[in-house]
Design a protein around this nucleic acid. Structure first.
Lengths: 251, 251
DNA sequence: TCTTGACTATAACGTAGCGTCATCCTTTAT
DNA sequence: ATAAAGGATGACGCTACGTTATAGTCAAGA
């Protein structure tokens, strides 16, 4: 299939000027020049342009793209796999910025407090990569939940100290729950410890504790899809496991 | 907390030159100039810089950022929510590019064939922006929830149609609940209609419906801070109102 | 055949958002 | 006291195009 410059531009979602420019800097030359002087692009140019746009999307300068694609031992597939992981990294960065935004919104509403450091997490890339290696994915997965909990805490009129305590409890609950679930016994020691922690956590939000209410809540964790997701993010079937453990705990 | 230009640059992961430039174009002026002529930045500038960087990340030109932040009726929270949805849109774009890459790799290996059209899906942004303008803010505000619900729906094994139905129901529940709450009568007609809708919504997630379970869930909406927040975002005290209405509904 | 409108070409200038010196002053650490 | 680090201003450079301006080409209708 052959394309005129306009057709190619529209196909790729770029401007004619851009294709002119790419020709000018010898990044992407047309397949041939027709008798009237018009540029004609063929299948090879299509693929090359696609590669160029992948690199461009990743912020690679054009002359480096030229060098990369033009290099003698250029392996298209290896390059594509490189793009893939780079794109995934970029998506992770966006995810961090989204988490940052969510927390910033909560902070703006007065639901939580952000350190100056936190305000810029997600913008820096190098530090992030280091952080990533250091802490891994768990923190990320937990971040969104932490925001929710922080806002809840404020809403419930907790002091900063109390809030931090609930956060700490929440973390310990999730950690222990994960381990307990791995062991598989709802009546086991660890699972029962989770129940005790969960009760303690509830103590910050409830005026009066009752076993019935606690059990009812546990059942809701299974019944309501929003909650289910919260616990199934820890491990699939975790909501049921917690309910079963609480049934033992509450006798 | 006060920062020197170097400290701020390192904090935010940008260059000193950039801060000089932002001062020059009056996008971000320091809080004050110390006696030795050095720039000094304060908390307000930190927050402003953070906003600037959010916009910049989205590709908004600096003078437009200036106009936006400087405009008289600038609402920080609304702006942040705008960033949030824009970021999510961007992440979606990246996701499309990733899908594109995966297919391109498969095609390069000869496992499949790609049309020229397909080769450039994900690069075009205009379609996305038009979408934004068309649907406006409501969708955006709801977007975060929609994502959660979508994943829930998937988890619950719903078809796309079913999922859309739950989403529609969810929207109608929230709308009606808001109105009913404003009227103030849990036994009123509107409130009872909300209950019926909520029951219908539950039908998509529960195998067997029972009034007791429904009531128990309603109580959980009051008891668990995470749920409470969900409903209190509609209106404060909404969780209790819904529970009271459901108590009437379930007799 | 003539005209009109959509495409195409080259050339040239303009721009945003800084990077990168160059030059000089101030503060801090040793 | 001296060096290293941090600060200021000014000026030029650069990338990746956008934006005219001017002119040739082509298909279709009047």
């Amino acid at each position: 299939m052959e394309y005129s410059i306009n057709k190619l531009a529209k196909l790729a979602g770029i401007s004619v000027r851009t294709l002119h420019y790419y020709d000018e800097i010898e990044l992407l030359a047309p397949k041939r020049i027709s008798s009237n002087g018009y540029r004609v692009y063929g299948p090879q140019e299509i693929d090359r342009l696609q590669q160029i746009l992948f690199y461009r999307e990743l912020g690679v300068p054009l002359d480096e793209i030229k060098r990369l694609i033009g290099s003698k031992n250029y392996d298209g597939i290896v390059a594509l796999q490189g793009h893939l992981s780079a794109m995934k990294a970029k998506r992770d960065q966006i995810d961090r910025l989204i988490a940052n935004l969510e927390k910033t919104i909560a902070a703006a509403k007065g639901e939580t407090i952000m350190s100056d450091q936190e305000k810029f997490t997600g913008f820096k890339q190098k530090l992030i990569e280091e952080n990533e290696k250091q802490y891994g994915r768990e923190i990320r997965a937990r971040y969104g939940d932490a925001v929710v909990e922080a806002s809840n805490a404020k809403m419930m009129g907790l002091t900063t100290e109390q809030y931090e305590k609930t956060q700490d409890l929440s973390r310990r609950i999730n950690e222990s729950l994960k381990l307990a679930y791995a062991q598989g016994d709802p009546a086991g020691e660890l699972a029962q410890k989770v129940c005790a922690l969960h009760r303690e956590w509830l103590g910050y939000f409830w005026q009066h504790y009752s076993k019935e209410a606690h059990l009812g809540l546990a059942q809701s964790y299974v019944d309501d899809p929003r909650f289910r997701k919260y616990y199934d993010d820890i491990a699939e079937g975790c909501a049921e496991f917690l309910r079963d453990a609480l049934q033992v705990y509450c006798q």
